[in-house]
Write a protein that binds this DNA or RNA. Structure first.
Length: 195
DNA sequence: TGCCCGATTAACT
DNA sequence: GTTAATCGGGCAA
């Protein structure tokens, strides 16, 4: 049985938290799986929503660590982020892909696909599979319906540039589980690190 | 108030 | 590889 992540886990720099999330199990309302891909955003980052200061949409990013920031993307999809420290730095980790392990039937139904590799391999897809929406913005990550379980062993992590950005597209702040078949997109030249 | 564009996805050619 | 779908946020006027 894995240990639940506490708020202390998120009360660190986003650049430490992001790679540490790879391999963590994310469940929402009992469905979900293992995190295999994330991206880090901080307030010095022109690509981050928080870059231009607090607004009603991004307010939760300016609050304490350990809460969910959910926003609508391209008017269609929802994207899930975890707010990190230090407080006021307005940094967060975008959860981009998970390997589905729990609640597969309900997730297949919500997504309308049978191929499990398409269930949660993308930020919009995983929110649809877990039924996460704007109503879940500001929820605490250490309480139901969220359940975050620490990884059990070491994992090999690959690093690369973030996906879909026009600003700061060169920053290597995307992290993935090496060799995972559930990434939203493959990584290029594999920079390797252990954790 | 109006305008532009995006931390995406799926369905095309 | 290209493109439509679709709409709220952020900024200029």
């Amino acid at each position: 049985m894995s240990k639940r992540l506490t708020r202390a886990f998120f009360s660190r720099s986003v650049h430490l938290v992001a790679p540490d999330l790879i391999g963590v199990t994310l469940l929402f309302g009992g469905a979900g799986g293992r995190i295999v891909e994330v991206e880090a955003y901080d307030h010095t980052d022109p690509a981050a929503h928080s870059f231009r200061g607090p607004t009603p949409r991004n307010a939760v990013m300016f609050g304490p660590a350990g809460f969910a920031y959910v926003y609508r993307s391209y008017g269609i999809h929802w994207c899930l982020n975890f707010v990190c420290e230090p407080k006021g730095s307005a940094s967060a980790v975008l959860i981009r892909a998970i390997e589905p392990t729990t609640g597969l039937p309900v997730m297949r139904r919500r997504r309308g696909v049978t191929d499990d590799r398409l269930l949660c391999s993308g930020p919009g897809r995983l929110c649809e599979a877990l039924r996460i929406s704007g109503a879940d913005n500001r929820l605490a990550l250490d309480a139901a319906p969220f359940e975050l379980l620490a990884r059990s062993g070491a994992v090999e992590i690959v690093v690369g540039p973030r996906i879909g950005l026009t600003k700061a597209a060169d920053k290597p702040w995307r992290y993935g589980l090496k060799g995972s078949r559930y990434l939203s997109k493959p990584f290029g030249r594999l920079a390797r690190r252990s954790a």
